[in-house]
Computed example of a mutant assay.
Amino acid sequence: MESVSSSLGQLLAIAVMALALGMDAFSLGVGIGLKGVRKLDVLQLSSVIALFHVLMPLAGMAMGYYVSGLLGGVATSAAGALLLLLGGHMVYSSLRGEEVRSINHRTFWGMLFFALSVSVDSFSVGVSLGMFASHILVTVLMFGAVGGLMSVLGLLLGRKISHQLGGYGEALGGAILFAFGILFLI
């Protein structure tokens, strides 16, 4: 019975992390959506973002397993500190009000740039999760699905809501990661 509740707890934690990481994709989608997007743009950009939300945490987890072997008992503290820094940076960036540069999201390089910019934090979280030997397949599939879905929602809602909500979405995502960092350190 403990194993089932432990697995459900881990699944819930992964889902919440996926939502937190997806806030960046949502925020970016809102910003790009305000410029005007076609349905094909929504499909292409959200697919690339979903792919990057799978690949980046995988790369991070591979590094996390390696780092975990080197650090031993310090791994939990290092992972918590990494999540604290990442969450703090996301909140700081959203409060600074940085605007997305005028890069054409319809080009191959533009899509790669945007997908990479919102999935770099997935790499960092992957490093942290790699230190804890979490369920790789479930984690990356959930990160990818939620990242893709959040980008679709942001792109579609971008025409209807103000740019400021995108910043709040990033701040909320950062706050959630920051909270997970604190939980790992306690």
Rank of each mutant, 00 (worst) to 15 (best):
F26E: 05
V67L: 15
A179E: 01
P57E: 08
L155T: 08
S77M: 15
Y65Q: 10
L185H: 01
V37E: 06
V37W: 09
G167M: 06
F143R: 12
H163Y: 14
V16A: 12
G166K: 03
H135L: 03
L34D: 07
R38F: 05
S134Q: 11
V74Q: 13
S102F: 00
L172A: 12
R101L: 05
M23R: 08
I186S: 12
G69H: 12
V100W: 00
M17N: 03
L153V: 13
G33D: 09
A145P: 07
G147D: 03
G36I: 04
H53E: 13
V100P: 02
S7R: 11
S128Y: 10
F113V: 11
G144V: 11
G167L: 14
R101P: 14
A59R: 03
G130A: 01
L82N: 04
G158Q: 11
L183S: 13
E98D: 13
S124Q: 03
F132L: 14
I14R: 11
K39F: 06
G60M: 09
V74R: 13
A13Y: 08
V67A: 14
G148Y: 09
G80D: 00
L155A: 13
A20W: 01
S47R: 08
G29H: 06
A50G: 14
F108K: 15
A133P: 01
S5A: 12
Y65L: 05
A81K: 10
L185Y: 02
K39P: 03
S7W: 10
F123Y: 14
L141H: 10
H163M: 12
I103Q: 06
L155Q: 13
V127L: 15
M63C: 14
L155W: 06
F184V: 04
G31F: 13
Q44K: 15
L19R: 03
Y66K: 12
L157S: 15
W109R: 13
V100D: 06
I161F: 05
S7I: 03
G80K: 08
F108A: 12
M61S: 06
L82P: 04
L21P: 09
Q164N: 05
S5T: 10
A20L: 04
L84D: 11
L55A: 12
I161G: 00
G148P: 07
S6H: 08
S27I: 00
S119V: 07
L70N: 07
V54W: 09
H53M: 09
L55F: 12
L43F: 15
S6P: 00
I136S: 11
S117F: 09
A145G: 15
R159T: 00
L177S: 04
G148W: 05
I176T: 03
M63E: 07
G174F: 05
L116C: 03
L116N: 02
F114L: 10
M23F: 14
L28V: 13
G29F: 07
H163Q: 05
V16S: 07
M111H: 02
G22D: 11
W109I: 00
D24A: 08
V48D: 04
L177C: 03
D41V: 11
A78L: 15
D121Y: 11
L45A: 08
L85D: 00
A79F: 07
G9V: 02
S162Q: 06
S94P: 01
F26K: 10
D41C: 09
F113C: 04
S94A: 15
H89W: 14
V127N: 07
G97Y: 05
